[in-house]
Design a protein around this nucleic acid. Structure first.
Length: 570
RNA sequence: GCGCCCGUAGCUCAGCUGGAUAGAGCGCUUGCCUCCGGAGCAAGAGGCCACAGGUUCGAAUCCUGUCGGGCGCGCCA
C-alpha cells in the first residue's frame, strides 16, 4: 500500500513562495492559533523574517497584502508576527479525510524504516519474583518502542536477556533444593530468605559461590539445577508480561556468555591501552580513566573475580558483541536509571576496543504515593494484582453495558480495559521522569486514561453499527464541514504523522499517548456538538461519518503503537 | 562528597529543537440523559512554570548557581 503524506496545507506553500522568491519551503510552517476566532491556520513569520531581514510583524502584514492565495483561502490577515488564514474548511478537511482513509492502517507511517534492522533488548527482569509495575515500566516502554519502529517499517527483533547466572541464583537453587517442588509464587520469599541467610550463614554463602563456580565450569548437573529454577521464574514472569501484550523474539541466556573468545581479544585491546590490571586480590580490573572516564567515582570496572569466575559486566560485554554480530543498524536497550553509569562504563570499554556502542533508552523508577516501592516491605503493586483487580472492576461495567454478550466475551473486553489502564498511565509519562503510581486513580477509568480513549472508539463503532452499509473511503466533492469542532478535530488528525516521526526521533511513545488524549477530547466535543446520524442533510451525515471513520483509524493506529486494543463495545 | 536525571494548579501529568492569553485530568462549585453510548460534554474557582541571576526583540523551554526529590559511585545482577 502507498503511503499518503497528509499535508493539507501543502497547496498554500507555492503562492507564498511566488510572492517571496527568496524563501523556500523550509522557512514555512503551519500551526493552529490559540483560538479559532483568530484564524483557521497560522503561519509564523520568524524564520522567513530572519532570512529577509525584516521584522516578523512587518513581513506578516506584507504577506497578507502580497500573496495571491487561491480559492482555498478566504481571508488572510496579519496578527503580530503571524499570518493567519481563514480557509475553505470543507476543501481542506476533505483532503485530510481522504488521505487518512486511503492510507488506512498505514496512516501516520512514512515507511522510512524499510530495510533498516533494529535489535531492541528490553524487560530482562531478574528471575526472582512476579514483576511489579516498576519493573514492568521497562517492558511497556520497550514493547511500545518495538511497535513504533515496526509501524515505521523497521525490521525489529526484540531480545530478552535472561539473567540465569550469578551468586543470587546459586543461593536460590540451594533453597529450592531444600523446599522441593518450589512454585512461582514462592520464589520471591525464597529469594529474600536466601539472601538473608547468606548474610549470617557463612557456609551457606560459600556454598552459593561454589555452586556458581561449578556452573561456570559447565558442570551439566549444576546447569540443570539452575535451568530448572530460572525456567520456572521466566515462565511465571512471561505469563504476566504476555497479558500486557508484550512479545519477544529471542531469549538470550546469560549462561551462554561465560566464555567467549571475542572477550580475550577485547581484553588484549584494553591491555594495549594499559587500561587493565590485576589487583591485590587477583581480580582483573579495567581502569576506565585510561580510556576516557574522567571522574574518580566509577573509575574501576571489575571483569573477573580473584578465583577466575566472571562478573556480570564481563558476560554482558560478550552478550553485547553477540547482539552486534546480528548486523543490526540500530542497537537499542531499555535500561533503568540505575544502570546509567554501568552502561557508560560498558560503552567506554566497547569503544576502546573498537566496537560500536549500543544506544540506551533510560527510564526512571515508579514511586508510590507514600514513597518508594519496597519488595521486602511488601510495598509494591504487582502487575498481576493490578490487572486482576482492574479487570474485575471493568467486568462489572461491561456486564451492565453489554448484556447481550457472553460472559467470556465480556471478560475479553474487561481484560483489554485493564491493560489499557496500566499501559496508558505508564506510557504517557516522559520515561526519564519518576512517576507516582496511584492504584485507586488508575482503577477509575475516568478522565485522562486509556479506557477514555477506548470509549471514544467504542462510540464511533456504535455509530458505524447503526448505519446501513459501509462508509465510503472517498469523500464527496461537497464536504461541508465548517464548524469549529469539526475543524479542530480534522487538524488534530492531520498532525498524527508528525507525532509519529517526533516519537521515532526522540525514541519515546509518550507523545503518542498524549496525542491520543487530545484527539479523543476533540472527538468528544465534536460528538457532543455535531449530530452525526441525525445530521440535517444526507451529505452532512456522510461527511461526518467519514470524519468519525478517520478519527477511529487514527486512534486505532496510535493505540496499536501503544499496545492498547480498542474493543468495538465496552 | 562527586556525577546523571527531575522540579509546571491542592494532587497526577502535558507543553521544552525559544514565540500569540501556560494546558488536561483528579478533587471542589455549577449546568447537561423524551437527542448518535453520561467510562461523556459545557462552564467556574485554582499558577511568581522551585528560587536567584544570565543570554535574547522574546524564556516554563537555553546557560550558571542555590534549594528540594530520584538514581548511581571496585569481587550484586
Amino acid at each position: 500500500m502507498r503511503n499518503i503524506p497528509v499535508n493539507p496545507f501543502e497547496s498554500l506553500v507555492a503562492p507564498i513562495l511566488a510572492a517571496f522568491p527568496e524563501l523556500d519551503a523550509d522557512d514555512l510552517s503551519f500551526g493552529t492559533p490559540p483560538k479559532l476566532d483568530m484564524g483557521d491556520v497560522a503561519i509564523p513569520m520568524f524564520l522567513a523574517a530572519k532570512k529577509l531581514k525584516s521584522p516578523p510583524p512587518k513581513l506578516a502584514a506584507e504577506a497578507a497584502q502580497k500573496v495571491e492565495f487561491g480559492s482555498e483561502v478566504t481571508e488572510a490577515k496579519p496578527m503580530g508576527p503571524y499570518l493567519n488564514l481563514r480557509l475553505n474548511r470543507g476543501a481542506i478537511g476533505r483532503k485530510i479525510v481522504a488521505g487518512v482513509l486511503e492510507a488506512g492502517e498505514r496512516f501516520g507511517s512514512s515507511g522510512s524504516g524499510k530495510g533498516t534492522k533494529v535489535v531492541l533488548e528490553h524487560t530482562s527482569i531478574n528471575p526472582n519474583a512476579s514483576p511489579h509495575v516498576g519493573r514492568a515500566r521497562n517492558a511497556m516502554i520497550g514493547d511500545s518502542l518495538a511497535r513504533l519502529f515496526r509501524f515505521e517499517d523497521y525490521d525489529v527483533e526484540v531480545h530478552y536477556y535472561v539473567n540465569d547466572m550469578g551468586r543470587q541464583i546459586g543461593l536460590l537453587v540451594l533453597i529450592a533444593d531444600e523446599l522441593q517442588n518450589l512454585t512461582f509464587d514462592q520464589i520471591l520469599d525464597a529469594y529474600v530468605a536466601a539472601n538473608e541467610r547468606a548474610k549470617e550463614d557463612e557456609a551457606f554463602a560459600q556454598a552459593g559461590y561454589e555452586l556458581l563456580a561449578k556452573m561456570e565450569q559447565g558442570d551439566p548437573e549444576t546447569q540443570k539445577r539452575f535451568t530448572a529454577v530460572t525456567d520456572l521464574c521466566l515462565k511465571g514472569q512471561l505469563e504476566v508480561l504476555t497479558r500486557l501484550g508484550g512479545t519477544y523474539d529471542v531469549f538470550d541466556h546469560e549462561s551462554k556468555y561465560v566464555k567467549d573468545a571475542r572477550l580475550d581479544a577485547l581484553v588484549e585491546k584494553l591491555k594495549e591501552k594499559d587500561a587493565v590490571f590485576i589487583d591485590d586480590d587477583k581480580r582483573l580490573v579495567v581502569d576506565l580513566s585510561k580510556i576516557g572516564h574522567e571522574l574518580e567515582e566509577g573509575r574501576y570496572f571489575v571483569l573477573l573475580r580473584g578465583n577466575g569466575s566472571s562478573m556480570y559486566g564481563f558476560r554482558d560485554l560478550a552478550y553485547t558483541l553477540d547482539k552486534q554480530a546480528l548486523g543490526a543498524d540500530i542497537n537499542m536497550m531499555v535500561l533503568g536509571e540505575d544502570h546509567k553509569l554501568y552502561a557508560q562504563q560498558l560503552g567506554l570499554i566497547l569503544a576502546a576496543a573498537g566496537h560500536p556502542v549500543p544506544e540506551p533508552i533510560y527510564y526512571s523508577y515508579i514511586l508510590l504515593k507514600d514513597g518508594k516501592m519496597s519488595t521486602r516491605q511488601g510495598k509494591v503493586v504487582l502487575l498481576s494484582d493490578f490487572l486482576d483487580e482492574a479487570a474485575t472492576l471493568a467486568q462489572e461495567r461491561v456486564a451492565e453495558q453489554c448484556t447481550d454478550l457472553s460472559k467470556e466475551e465480556q471478560q475479553v473486553i474487561a481484560e483489554q480495559v485493564a491493560v489499557a489502564a496500566i499501559r496508558f498511565s505508564i506510557l504517557r509519562v516522559t520515561p526519564n521522569k519518576n512517576v507516582i503510581f496511584d492504584m485507586e486513580e488508575n482503577m477509575k477509568f475516568v478522565g485522562d486514561t486509556g479506557p477514555y480513549i477506548q470509549y471514544s472508539c467504542a462510540r464511533i463503532n456504535s455509530m458505524m453499527r447503526k448505519i446501513a452499509g459501509e462508509v465510503s473511503d472517498v469523500p464527496a466533492e461537497k464536504f461541508n464541514t465548517t464548524s469549529d469542532a469539526e475543524w479542530a478535530l480534522l487538524t488534530k488528525i492531520a498532525e498524527f504523522p508528525n507525532v509519529v516521526s517526533g516519537g521515532l526521533k526522540q525514541r519515546t511513545c509518550a507523545p503518542i499517548a498524549n496525542y491520543t488524549l487530545e484527539l479523543s477530547r476533540l472527538f468528544s466535543s465534536f460528538y457532543n456538538e455535531c449530530p452525526v446520524l441525525k445530521a440535517k442533510t444526507e451529505s452532512l451525515m456522510m461527511a461526518r461519518l467519514q470524519i468519525c471513520k478517520a478519527t477511529l483509524q487514527t486512534l486505532t493506529n496510535a493505540l496499536d503503537i501503544l499496545g492498547i486494543e480498542a474493543p468495538e463495545r465496552m
